[in-house]
Design a binder for these strands. Structure first.
Length: 408
RNA sequence: GGGGAGAUACCCAAGCGGUCAAAGGGGGCAGGCUGUAAACCUGUUGGCGUAGCCUUCGGAGGUUCGAACCCUCCUCUCCCCA
């Protein structure tokens, strides 16, 4: 493989910054000559286990390295998760228990191979080395860093200037991440741009400990479905790759129009010229944003669930939202006959049985707002005891449907 | 160690003795509209069979007819001084 071409491929839209391009070129060159693959590190935090589109940007970058013959080293940060990455946070994260972390890590491993090449992936836990360090060794390690240097980090600096707390263990996070790089002898470390500081620390520590420093390759941060802040599970503005086809489809359709380009560029597998064509048609008005979004949604579903699922999700979406029809399949709400009184049930009770309302008040609110329909007829808040027959359809809001089945 | 400031609902943030289930914003949910679960507009957002009642304002006590608001102690955070 031609090194210049490889470099060009690696530095596509999914790369925001490289530290440094020259060094990367050199490493690629040497690897090509010696046949020794580069070790490309990515640390993952098993705090929120579900991989979402935001993670895929960087995972696809790792895949790109793997396709060029290099080795992906995935570090499950079971020990760093005990700290919680303070990146981008104005608050200390809650610490997770070891059991939660293990469970999350397992989920992560399951999902990650939807993108990575298992043949070229090493998975390690950083607890493997951290749990063996003695306190003396920790002290020796920390002596290589200074407080002033650590306070250069944006989020620490911000919090510091706003008089918000910074716990000492949080400061350990970048140090631990840097040490990971040393332990796996990383040639390249991947991460989103918010990881800049941590990754540069790794470079510094590797040099300090007599290794060649790693390349930092930073991916852009994907904006969440809300359109304003980064995609994050804890915020809830995410599209998870393990989510159901209809969820992925629907959530994609719900992104603000001005986000379409970003998703095409960072989260899709469309070729660069296709992306460009889409973007041009959007900006010159020749395409309806809805239609482009529709194609994007189909594409994303097929990436994680296959073409058939994508077709189905697409037609279901049209059925429900364009034609305002009922979906072909809907969850069944089983209702025992003795829940009814003379064939009637209090609508609030029904909503709670369907798990469509969190409380009676919530359910009453929904009814009053006209969000509840039975067989297409709006439930009147003044007549809350509704007659139920088997096979009826309950609709709550625009997108929650249930088929009611009576049983004894 | 000494002095000062603060902790309010999912988040930010008002309130400083009754009219406070608690302003405003964000987020969530819903309705309208539409090209979509975009945008925009409107409503709603502690619990209870829907009436008033119950439980909320860091924790525990206290003062008062009455406390998110006053007092005491405790926990946590920040600032200044050393």
């Amino acid at each position: 493989m031609n090194v210049d071409l490889a470099l060009e491929q690696l530095l596509d839209a999914r790369t925001a910054e490289v530290y440094t391009k020259e060094e990367l070129h050199k490493k690629l060159q040497r690897s090509a000559e010696t046949g020794i693959p580069l070790r490309v590190k990515l640390g993952v935090d098993p705090t929120a286990p579900d991989i979402h589109l935001g993670h895929t940007v960087v995972l696809r970058k790792m895949r790109a390295f793997q396709d060029l013959g290099h080795t992906g080293v995935l570090i499950i940060g079971d020990y760093t998760a005990l700290v919680g990455d303070p990146t981008g946070r104005s608050k200390t994260r809650p610490q997770l228990s070891y059991e939660e972390i293990e469970h999350n890590a397992a989920t992560y491993r399951e999902q990650v191979f939807k993108i990575l090449d298992p043949e070229r992936t090493e998975i390690v836990h950083n607890g493997d080395w951290f749990k063996k360090l003695s306190f003396g060794e920790v002290l020796r390690l920390t002596s290589r860093f200074t407080v002033a240097r650590l306070l250069e980090r944006d989020d620490f600096a911000n919090r510091f200037s706003k008089n918000l707390p910074i716990s000492l263990h949080e400061v350990m996070y970048p140090i631990m991440q840097a040490y990971d790089s040393v332990m796996v002898r990383a040639d390249v470390e991947l991460g989103a741009t918010e990881q800049t500081f941590n990754i540069l620390m790794g470079r510094q520590l590797q040099e300090n400990m007599g290794q060649e420093r790693q390349i930092g390759l930073l991916a852009p941060i994907l904006t969440g479905t809300c359109g304003s802040v980064r995609m994050s599970k804890s915020i809830g503005n995410y599209i998870g790759i393990a989510e159901s086809p209809s969820e992925i489809f629907g959530k994609t359709m719900s992104i603000p129009d001005n986000l379409i380009g970003e998703y095409l560029r960072l989260a899709s597998e469309f070729e660069a010229d296709e992306v460009e064509r889409f973007e041009r048609s959007l900006s010159d008005g020749s395409a309806n944003p809805r239609d482009v979004k529709f194609q994007l949604a189909r594409h994303l579903v097929s990436l994680y669930h296959g073409d058939d699922a994508a077709d189905k999700a697409g037609s279901e979406f049209e059925q429900i939202f364009s034609k305002r029809d009922l979906p072909d399949e809907m969850p069944v709400l089983e209702l025992k006959r003795d829940e009814l009184e003379e064939g009637r049930i209090w609508i609030v009770k029904l909503l709670k049985l369907a798990n469509a309302a969190s409380s009676n008040s919530n359910a009453i609110g929904l009814v009053q707002q006209g969000a509840v329909q039975l067989d297409g007829a709006r439930v009147d808040a003044d007549a809350p005891d509704v007659k139920i027959e088997s096979g009826m359809t309950l609709k709550v809001g625009k997108r929650r449907f249930f088929r009611i089945e009576l049983s004894n």
